[in-house]
Every structure is written in structure tokens, then in C-alpha cells.
Simulated scan of single mutants.
Amino acid sequence: MVEFAGWSMPVQYTDSHISSHMHTRTHCSLFDVSHMLQTKVHGKDQVKFMESLVVADIAELKDNQGTLSLFTNDKGGIMDDLIVTKTDQGYLYVVSNAGCADKDSAHMKAKLSEFKAAGFDVDLEFLDDALIAVQGPSMSRVLQEGVKDNLKNLPFMFSALTSAFGVPCRVTRCGYTGEDGVEISVPSSRVVELTERLLSNPEVKLSGLGARDSLRLEAGLCLYGNDIDETTTPVEATLVWTIGKRRRQTRDFPGADIIVPQIKNKTQRKRVGLVSTGPPVRQHTPILSTDGKVIGEVTSGCPSPCLKKNVAMGYVDSAFSKNGTQIQVEVRKKAVPATISKMPFVPTNYYTG
């Protein structure tokens, strides 16, 4: 167990980190992600309110569809990443990171006061429900036994209110592993019941933070505080796809006057993937050109259990960001050859219907 964003979290259970990682890729694993901040945004001006904080086009979402988005600040930096779902129950359902929970809630409350003072109809409800993630290729087979709705009708980034094995819940097809998976929001009083029912299937094993980190890294997914933060813009982070096309024109999100010109004019640095062999590459490892000049820094890195080589992501001078570029990483004061690589490192298996 380790301290994580004010919570006590399991790094691993009885299985080793590698075993948990591979079980998720071949069967399915259950992660306790109840530390994430869950919020409902109510009121007829909910979309306008949310769009004043994030870069996504929330208005264009279909009923029960979600999108990954970013809270940005006035300097164009990323305050957090989050998923916003437009439900057909008349509210927006928002899931953001535990590490930013205090910052995110204060940020939303400040904007709420501003909106209410201007006469807009909007309200926030912070939930104390639990959240569990079931991730892996056999997830749909396991969960289908306990839900009446056909999971074939729930594609990636769509959400449904339902019940699982008799427990009322919200099931959202998303996750942080690159595999087909769901996140299930469930009343805290019944999460143990649902978890035990899921674990009664031998396909399902508990998995901790260790495997969660290596799985998301193989999938090329950012970890807030490591790979993106308030000093990083969405363009530098290669997250331009999160910015709605309409929003690029209206430029009515925080930092738009900095972010939108960067889309056309490029940036001096860029988030890239890289692979290497030999000693593991970790966060803060310097990235060097082949002639030994420092051109960037690793933000996340680990040995890949699937690929049997080191995978990492970091920021480099844009001139070195092309896939296939030969570079070096400085591990224990030695320069080790590495290659800029496209992400995800391991192909994703999201269910798109």
C-alpha cells in the first residue's frame, strides 16, 4: 500500500506486477479507482458552464456519449484531464483525477459563483460513490452475465444507467489500459458486494497501481502530474484532438488565444514516445541527441511486460520528434541508444461497436 493523492492505495495484490499486467491484457482485472473525483453538473446552462472550463465541444455530444477533455488555464496550460459525459438524465457526469480533486472542485466552484451571479442556471453535485474499473478482453463476457442491457450496444466512451448483479450503477465503456473495459460508478455501501460478485469469476483478478501505470504507458496514455501539467499546452502534449473544431473557431475556452495559434504554428517541444533496450528508463531521465546534446526529458518510463523492452514518453525539441529518429537516453550517467516511436506502443483494443 502507498499514499496516493491523500488516499491509501494498493500497488499490487498477491500477484506480481508483471502477472497482473499480463492478466489484464489476456483476461480482465478489477481496479479500485474510487479516489477519482465524480461530479454531476445540473441546470439548463450546464453545457455553457462546462465549455467555459474545458476545450471539448460538449454541445455536439450525443446522449450518453462522453469525451476526454482538458481543464485549461489562461496561459494555455493543462490543469487536469477529465471525462465529460452528456447523460440523458439531464446532467453532465464528470470524472477527474484524485490528485487534482481539491484544485478541480475549487476551480469549478469559483466558476459556478461567477455563472450564478450572472443569472445562469447551473449547479454542482460532488458524488461520494465508489468507482471500479474492469479492464481486459473478457470484461464484456464477465459483466454481461449480470446486466440486462446488451453490452454490444454500449461502444467506447458511451455510458448507461443500469444494474450489475442486482446493484444499481452507471457503466461507462472507457478505461486507462488500452483494453476493452468499463468504469462502474456504484453506491459506496454496495461496492464490496459488486466487487466480490465480479471476483467470483476466475477471469477477474484484483490489480493495483503498479500494473495500472505500466498498462497506461504501453497504451500511450498520459498521467497528470507526470506527462501533462500546468506548464504544458495541449499542442505540446499532442492532445490537439481533444479540442473541438467549433471551439477552435470560437476561441472561448481558457488559454485559447495561446493554444489555437500553436495548432498552426507548431511548438518548440513535443510529447513523444521512445523505446530502448538495456537499463530501465524512468521519469526525469535526460534525452540526448546522438551527439550528446540535451534535447528533452522523460516524463514516464518502464520496462514493457508485453514488448520486453523499455518504453517511455517525454518531451523533446520538435526537430527531433519524428518517428524513427535515433536519439539517446542518459541512464546512470551513460548514454543508451533509443528511438522515437509512435504511440500506443501496444495496439489498443477499445470496443467501438
Rank of each mutant, 00 (worst) to 15 (best):
A5E: 04
S8H: 13
M9C: 14
Q12T: 10
Y13R: 08
T14G: 10
S20P: 01
R25P: 10
S29P: 14
F31E: 11
M36S: 10
V41T: 06
K44L: 10
K44F: 12
D45K: 05
D45A: 05
M50Q: 08
V55F: 08
I58A: 08
N64L: 11
T67K: 14
L68K: 10
F71A: 14
D74A: 15
D74P: 14
K75T: 12
I78M: 09
D80K: 01
D81R: 07
V84R: 07
T87D: 11
D88S: 12
G90I: 15
V94L: 11
V95I: 15
N97Q: 12
K103E: 06
K103F: 10
A106T: 12
A110G: 11
K111D: 07
A117R: 15
A118S: 07
D121W: 13
L124R: 07
L127G: 09
D129S: 11
A133K: 14
P137M: 02
S140K: 09
L143T: 09
E145Q: 09
D149W: 00
N150W: 06
L151C: 03
L154Q: 03
P155D: 01
P155E: 03
P155Q: 06
M157F: 10
M157N: 08
T162V: 07
S163H: 06
S163T: 13
F165C: 13
F165G: 11
G166P: 01
V167P: 03
C169D: 04
V171K: 05
V171A: 11
G175N: 04
Y176S: 08
Y176E: 02
Y176V: 12
S185P: 00
V186P: 07
P187T: 10
R190Y: 02
R190D: 07
V191T: 11
R197G: 15
L199W: 05
N201M: 03
E203F: 14
L206S: 09
G210T: 11
D213P: 00
L217E: 00
N226P: 13
I228R: 03
P234V: 06
A237I: 12
T238V: 14
L239Q: 03
W241S: 13
I243A: 05
R246T: 13
R247I: 00
Q249P: 00
G255K: 01
I259Q: 02
I259H: 02
I263T: 08
I263R: 04
Q268H: 12
Q268P: 00
R269P: 00
R269G: 00
V272H: 04
G273H: 04
L274D: 01
L274S: 01
G278N: 01
R282V: 09
Q283E: 06
I287N: 02
L288Q: 03
V294D: 14
T299Q: 02
T299Y: 01
T299R: 05
S300E: 11
C302Q: 09
P303H: 07
S304V: 05
K308S: 15
V311S: 02
M313K: 09
Y315S: 05
Y315Q: 15
Y315N: 09
V316C: 04
V316N: 06
K322P: 02
G324V: 05
T325E: 08
I327V: 08
I327Y: 02
E330A: 10
V331K: 01
A335C: 05
A338V: 05
S341Q: 10
P344W: 03
P344F: 01
V346K: 10
N349K: 13
N349A: 15
N349C: 12
Y350P: 05
